[in-house]
Design a protein around this nucleic acid. Structure first.
Lengths: 229, 229
DNA sequence: GATCACTGTTGTGTATACAGAAACCGCAGC
DNA sequence: GCTGCGGTTTCTGTATACACAACAGTGATC
């Protein structure tokens, strides 16, 4: 469920197992270690520069995260992403995010969300700024996620959401969204924010439902396009 | 280090780390290791009869399960269950089970659920049979859960549900339900089953929502009673 | 020419050794 | 009596050694 990551701010001398975990995780998420790639303990331990003991701990955490599966017999491999698994992930995501939005609308402190709303109003302009703008746009979404998480105040729910977002990050790499979708998404986010600010849980839930539906449709279309190309 | 391989025919020679994991998990779930109990690597490794290496792997998995938290500095401890955390868990559970019921209603093969329905019709009679009957009743609920899981056919969602059920098992120990609640629950389950059999996702969702609401109310009341006693 | 058995190699699973760090205890100082 | 400090002890984090199991390659047999 939630693999506790040590506090970020203080750069204490990182444990070897933590280093191995972060590096492998990073490499899996950004596609450097491709889905289905077979990994061997010794080989990876050697590469990362730690001994097998901490590497094993790292792999155990990755397995718990669902990023890696143990292989019958020998070694382990990076879990692969099928189109089916994307729809499945979104079914879970729907359930969690809808609930989160609902609870956020009930428990939010409006001030933070009002601020975020202002940012989202001007978000579409970011998309004219090229790659940097898109990056800022994604950062804004992360802020929204964080704000919702904080408002929800539920470790179980937030933990489950975090797990989903981990897998989502891999999917995002598969199908880069087009600007028109991002513009539409900004509008949808605005609607969700309005509902949360208004303290209307039902509206927040439905707005989130719609947003995720559109998101899934767009992701699947993008992947379809890519594979047809 | 010998593991009795031939003891049970179907049992493959269990790895030490797996043994340690199962034993610790079991002991946490049935309350033998109380919430907040502080555990030391060496001490536990010694007790279970494995070396520290596999024990550490087991503890890592327990942390991922959320049953255990690393302690600042030294050792680790069993996560404790507050009344707040029960409500929080149910907020997650709501989201997941409602979605699962909805999807089960869409995808179910009716035959299995019709069978289950028949069993649930006579379930209240089990409650007159004392402890054995109650046990059978719980087994029936497990069967329903399994049937829903199978029908949903979504590893992500089912995985999240499994995690929730793990924590649920601990809560069940805190507040044993009274027979009248179990009788009411049987009726609620019947409603859910009917909705799934009818292939009515919306009804299944709402029936599940209600069931879990009642379940939470009853659990909280039971705990309140116990603590007042 | 193909299949099977045997053996060498490689990799995992586990135990253990060692270093560094955090808690504990006692003592001195206020 | 309480608090701050240093030594001691114990525990964790990591590396390494070893045993067993799985795979691959070679040779023998049909």
């Amino acid at each position: 469920m939630y693999t506790e990551t040590a506090a970020v701010g203080s750069e204490a001398p990182l444990r070897a197992s933590e280093r191995a975990y972060r590096q492998l995780r990073e490499e899996i998420l950004n596609g450097l270690l491709a889905p289905g790639a077979g990994l061997l303990e010794v080989e990876q331990a050697d590469r990362i520069g730690v001994s097998r003991t901490p590497l094993r701990e790292a792999v155990a955490r990755l397995i718990a995260d669902g990023l890696v599966v143990g292989r019958r017999g020998r070694g382990f491999e990076v879990t692969d992403i099928s189109v089916d698994s994307i729809s499945e992930l979104y079914e879970l995501r729907q359930a969690l995010e809808v609930q989160a939005s609902r609870l956020a609308a009930l428990r939010r402190d409006p001030t933070l969300f009002v601020e975020l709303r202002e940012a989202f109003v001007t978000a579409p302009d970011l998309l004219d700024l090229g790659d940097v703008g898109v990056h800022q746009y994604y950062a804004l979404i992360d802020q929204l996620d964080d704000a919702v998480d904080a408002a929800v105040e539920n470790p179980f729910l937030v933990g489950a959401l975090r797990a989903v977002r981990t897998h989502l990050a891999r999917i995002r790499r598969l199908a880069r969204r087009n600007p028109s979708r991002l513009r539409a998404a900004a509008a949808e986010h605005l609607l969700i924010l309005d509902a949360i600010i208004a303290g209307d849980p039902s509206l927040a839930a439905h707005a989130t439902h719609i947003h995720l539906h559109q998101s899934l449709v767009s992701v699947l279309a993008a992947i379809d396009e890519d594979s047809a190309r």
